[in-house]
């Protein structure tokens, strides 16, 4: 399941709600990415997350399908913020359920790294001096 959120969301509630729909799981691995109040040595006070409506949802669903085909999973949950966001708010959730830990761990990492490189989101930072700048690339995950 994939959702985009224009307001602050509770990743733990989404995990619990999705787990309530599943049976037969023995493992769940999750990743939650939150907004930092610093980047490249500057204090960041807020951020705007732009995306490509339609393509974003399709890419995220394709990434989930890739993960479901590659590992034996019982379920996946992906959520991502869009719009205006402030430090400490969650930006992204990836969670995977499986019978044993190996599949859940590996698939959760895969979903997150695939999302980082393929999902059409762009971050614009607001700095403490009032200026704004686009984030030009993501930090490597490995």
């Amino acid at each position: 399941m994939v959702t985009l959120h224009e307001q602050d969301f509770d990743p733990w509630a989404l995990i619990q709600a999705h787990q309530n729909t599943l049976r037969g799981y023995g493992a769940m691995a999750s990743f939650v990415g939150s907004m930092r109040d610093f980047n490249e040595g500057d204090t960041v006070t807020a951020m705007h997350l732009e995306h490509y409506p339609g393509m974003t949802q399709a890419q995220l669903e394709e990434i989930v399908q890739d993960g479901m085909q590659r590992w034996s999973l019982l379920g996946c949950r992906v959520a991502h913020r869009v719009g205006d966001i402030t430090p400490e708010q969650p930006i992204v959730l990836t969670a995977c359920w499986s019978a044993h830990r190996k599949e859940a761990f590996e698939a959760c990492r895969y979903l997150m790294e695939a999302l980082k490189s393929r999902a059409p989101f762009w971050k614009r930072e607001q700095l403490i001096d009032g200026t704004q700048r686009w984030v030009e690339k993501n930090t490597p995950g490995y």
Partner: peptide
């Protein structure tokens, strides 16, 4: 057709 810079989500 869409043109855009490298993506920076997550």
């Amino acid at each position: 057709v869409a043109f855009f810079p490298p993506v920076t989500g997550g």
